[in-house]
Amino acid sequence: MDLVKTDSKNIYYPPGGILLWVIIFLELFTFGMALVAMVIYSKDEPKIFHNSRLLLNTTFGLANTVFLLTSGFFMAKSVQSFKANNSKKSSLYLKLTMLGGFFFLLLKSIEYYEKIAVGLSIGYNTFFTFYWMLTLFHVIHVIVGLVILSSVYFSLNKKNKSVALEDFEASATFWHLCDLIWLLLFPLIYLIF
């Protein structure tokens, strides 16, 4: 049974806080509009977009999706344990969450290295301009998310627990935002064109 409750049913208190949800929608609209622009540009150069998409490693994209979804699962479990006042479990799940994020960054680095090695840089063509801008912007979110989660992790492991539920939920919501953005990017960049 959860020992701590928040009033999520109130319109002003969505899980993670209203400010974060405003940011989530701004981010989703920004990435969404960029992807719509990508689709519009693909109309002018359908062959280039198709051939460029084939140069991407779908397995890497798929593995990165698995890493982020699994990481999101551990984040949800961590919040659940935190609400049940089980700091030890919450801390363990938080570590696993961050591990998923690190695996994502590691694989993304390998992918970027491969692309740069064969000359598929940001100026190669329109498809790769979108690819680099969107995925790098997402990577920045993941790095910021990891910094936030590390800060929560260290606070959680202090002798006198000093993390408020609202802060913990807000950090978790930001981490899930990274999942959501990647779920937008993955099908369009790696699969559709």
Binding site: S8, P15, G16, L69, T173, D179, L180, L183
Partner: peptide, 16 residues
């Protein structure tokens, strides 16, 4: 997938 993450992992199911 998007709704799965939002509604379950982000607990939007419990939101307004």
């Amino acid at each position: 997938k998007f709704l799965g993450v939002a509604f379950y992992f982000m607990e939007l199911k419990k939101a307004h």
